[in-house]
Simulated assay, not measured.
Amino acid sequence: MLRAALPAVLLLLAGCATQTRPVADVAPPAPQTPPKAMQWLYGSGEGAAISRQAYNALAAYTATVAADRKAGRPVRSAILAPGATLDAPRFVECAGGQPLAAMFDVDETVLLNLGFEYDDAKGGVRPWDEDRWARWEQAGADKVLPVPGAVEALATLRAQGLTILFNSNRNTANGAFTKAAIEGAGLGPAVAGDTLYLKGDVAPGSGKDPRRLKASEHYCIVALGGDQLGDFSDQFGPLMKDIPGRRAWVGQGAIARLWGAGWFVLPNPLYGTGTVGSYDDVFPADKRWTDQGGK
Results as ranks from 00 to 15, higher is better:
Met1Ile: 13
Leu2Trp: 05
Leu6Arg: 11
Pro7Ala: 07
Ala8Thr: 08
Leu11Gln: 01
Leu11Asp: 05
Leu11Lys: 15
Leu12Thr: 09
Gly15Met: 02
Gly15Val: 07
Gly15Trp: 02
Cys16Glu: 11
Gln19Gly: 08
Thr20Asp: 08
Val23Ala: 14
Val23Asp: 13
Val23Asn: 09
Asp25Thr: 13
Val26Met: 09
Ala27Cys: 06
Ala27Ser: 09
Pro28Asn: 08
Pro29Val: 14
Ala30Cys: 01
Pro34Glu: 12
Pro35Arg: 11
Lys36Pro: 08
Met38Asp: 14
Gln39Tyr: 09
Gln39His: 06
Gly43Phe: 10
Gly43Leu: 05
Gly43Asp: 07
Gly45Gln: 14
Ile50Thr: 12
Ile50Phe: 11
Ile50Asp: 03
Arg52Val: 05
Gln53Arg: 14
Gln53Ser: 15
Gln53Asp: 10
Ala54Trp: 01
Asn56Tyr: 05
Asn56Gly: 14
Ala59Ser: 15
Ala59Gly: 14
Ala60Tyr: 03
Ala63Cys: 01
Arg73Tyr: 02
Arg76His: 03
Ser77Thr: 04
Pro82Glu: 08
Ala84Met: 08
Ala84Ile: 02
Ala84Tyr: 00
Thr85Leu: 04
Leu86Ile: 04
Leu86Thr: 01
Ala88Trp: 02
Pro89Thr: 08
Phe91Tyr: 14
Val92Ala: 02
Glu93Gln: 10
Cys94Ser: 05
Ala95His: 14
Gln98Ala: 10
Asp105Met: 01
Asp107Glu: 07
Glu108Pro: 02
Thr109Asn: 12
Leu112Glu: 04
Gly115Gln: 02
Glu117Met: 14
Tyr118Glu: 12
Asp119Gln: 15
Asp120Glu: 15
Lys122Leu: 14
Gly123Cys: 07
Gly124Glu: 05
Asp129Arg: 11
Asp131Thr: 15
Trp133His: 11
Trp133Asn: 06
Gln138Ala: 15
Gly140Lys: 03
Ala141Met: 08
Ala141Val: 02
Asp142Thr: 15
Val144Arg: 07
Val144Gly: 06
Gly149His: 01
Glu152Ala: 15
Leu162Cys: 08
Thr163Ala: 14
Asn167Ser: 09
Thr172Lys: 14
Gly175Thr: 10
Gly175Asn: 08
Ala176Met: 10
Ala176Pro: 04
Phe177Lys: 09
Thr178Glu: 07
Ala180His: 12
Ile182Cys: 05
Ile182Tyr: 03
Gly184Ile: 09
Gly184Val: 04
Gly184Leu: 10
Leu187Asp: 03
Pro189Lys: 11
Ala192Gly: 13
Gly193Arg: 10
Gly193Ala: 04
Asp194Cys: 06
Leu196Ile: 13
Leu198Thr: 06
Val202Glu: 12
Ala203Tyr: 10
Pro204Gln: 11
Gly205Thr: 11
Asp209Val: 13
Ala215Val: 15
His218Cys: 06
Gly225Cys: 10
Asp227Thr: 05
Asp227Phe: 10
Leu229Phe: 04
Ser233Ala: 14
Ser233Arg: 11
Phe236Met: 00
Pro238Trp: 00
Leu239Asp: 00
Met240Tyr: 09
Met240Val: 03
Asp242His: 00
Ile243Asn: 00
Trp249Phe: 08
Trp249Gly: 00
Gln252Tyr: 11
Ile255Trp: 03
Ile255Phe: 07
Ile255Glu: 00
Arg257Met: 07
Gly262Ile: 01
Trp263Ser: 00
Leu266Asn: 00
Pro267Gln: 01
Tyr271Glu: 05
Gly274Gln: 05
Gly277Met: 00
Asp281His: 01
Phe283Ser: 04
Pro284Tyr: 06
Arg288Cys: 04
Trp289Tyr: 15
Thr290Phe: 07
Gln292Val: 12
